[in-house]
Amino acid sequence: MAVALVTGAGQGIGRATALRLSVAGHRVALVGRDPAKLDAVAAELAGEALCVPADLTDAGAPDHVFGAVEREWGAVGVLVANAGTGLAAPLVETTDELWRTMLEVNLTAPFRCIRRAVPGMTAQGWGRVVVVASVVAKRGERQVAAYSASKHGVLGLVRAAADELARTGVTVNAVCPGYVDTPMTDATVATMGERLGKDPAQARALLARRQPIGRLIDPDEVAAAVLACVDNAAITGQGINVDGGTVQS
């Protein structure tokens, strides 16, 4: 089994993915900003865990994180670039700061992690990169121009990297969730409620109804798609929808 590194591992999709990777027999390095959350997830894992607190918007963070894992366990074979953030604003109220934040967290940080991971993967002739993108990597959506642009960008990065690495034994994919029942969605619910004059339960129901299945996606359902990309060498260059039928492709 491989050495796996999961970013944004302290909660939500990252936590669910780390649990699945651990059950599958992988060593799992947990990366995130909150050491206490990482420790809590590590205690849940079935096998070995390594916690590496880091802020991936720092340009030097990938070298620090990968170096720590390599010193302990060797080269990373599975990278799950899950860390992300979402902020909403009308286009004309989207500030330069909001724009930069979306690009730094959702596009530049995954790029730096992939760039750092690839040499070790190609050297061993095997590797799996999975980026957690979004359903809005495939369509535009009102109020989230910056978020949508960052996720479109990261899907383009995935496709280009997959083509470049196709004959090296390294696959590169994205999973594209809809609205998932995570703390990040809780923040979206709060913002929606304030804007629309709804209580949290009403705002959450509105989000659920945006998906044809009529409910939020469970984080473990996204994690299952991540594991499918890890297990299947013939899947590369894909953006796999986990969105309850929102985008049919």
Rank of each mutant, 00 (worst) to 15 (best):
residue 7 T to Y: 05
residue 7 T to C: 01
residue 8 G to R: 11
residue 9 A to E: 10
residue 10 G to L: 12
residue 10 G to D: 11
residue 11 Q to F: 03
residue 11 Q to I: 03
residue 11 Q to M: 10
residue 14 G to D: 05
residue 15 R to A: 06
residue 15 R to S: 07
residue 16 A to T: 04
residue 16 A to E: 04
residue 20 R to P: 00
residue 21 L to I: 12
residue 23 V to W: 02
residue 24 A to C: 00
residue 24 A to F: 01
residue 24 A to W: 02
residue 24 A to M: 01
residue 25 G to P: 00
residue 25 G to W: 00
residue 30 L to E: 14
residue 30 L to K: 14
residue 30 L to H: 14
residue 31 V to F: 14
residue 31 V to G: 13
residue 32 G to R: 15
residue 33 R to M: 00
residue 33 R to L: 02
residue 34 D to F: 02
residue 35 P to W: 15
residue 38 L to V: 15
residue 40 A to V: 06
residue 42 A to D: 12
residue 44 E to H: 07
residue 45 L to W: 13
residue 48 E to K: 07
residue 49 A to N: 01
residue 50 L to G: 13
residue 52 V to K: 04
residue 53 P to M: 11
residue 53 P to R: 07
residue 54 A to H: 10
residue 56 L to M: 15
residue 57 T to D: 11
residue 57 T to Q: 14
residue 58 D to P: 11
residue 61 A to D: 09
residue 62 P to W: 00
residue 65 V to S: 13
residue 65 V to L: 08
residue 67 G to D: 08
residue 71 R to P: 01
residue 73 W to D: 06
residue 73 W to H: 13
residue 74 G to F: 11
residue 76 V to M: 11
residue 76 V to E: 04
residue 77 G to Q: 08
residue 78 V to E: 08
residue 78 V to N: 12
residue 81 A to P: 05
residue 82 N to E: 08
residue 83 A to L: 02
residue 84 G to L: 01
residue 86 G to E: 08
residue 86 G to S: 09
residue 86 G to I: 06
residue 87 L to E: 11
residue 88 A to H: 05
residue 90 P to D: 02
residue 90 P to I: 00
residue 92 V to P: 04
residue 92 V to A: 11
residue 93 E to T: 10
residue 93 E to R: 13
residue 95 T to S: 15
residue 96 D to R: 10
residue 96 D to L: 09
residue 98 L to D: 04
residue 100 R to V: 12
residue 103 L to N: 13
residue 105 V to I: 10
residue 105 V to Y: 03
residue 105 V to K: 05
residue 106 N to A: 09
residue 107 L to A: 06
residue 107 L to D: 09
residue 108 T to S: 14
residue 108 T to I: 13
residue 109 A to K: 10
residue 109 A to D: 14
residue 109 A to F: 12
residue 111 F to P: 04
residue 113 C to L: 15
residue 113 C to E: 01
residue 115 R to I: 01
residue 116 R to M: 00
residue 118 V to G: 05
residue 118 V to R: 04
residue 119 P to V: 04
residue 119 P to E: 01
residue 119 P to T: 03
residue 119 P to N: 02
residue 121 M to Q: 13
residue 122 T to F: 02
residue 123 A to T: 08
residue 124 Q to Y: 06
residue 125 G to N: 08
residue 126 W to C: 02
residue 130 V to C: 03
residue 130 V to T: 10
residue 132 V to A: 03
residue 132 V to W: 00
residue 133 A to Q: 04
residue 134 S to W: 01
residue 135 V to F: 00
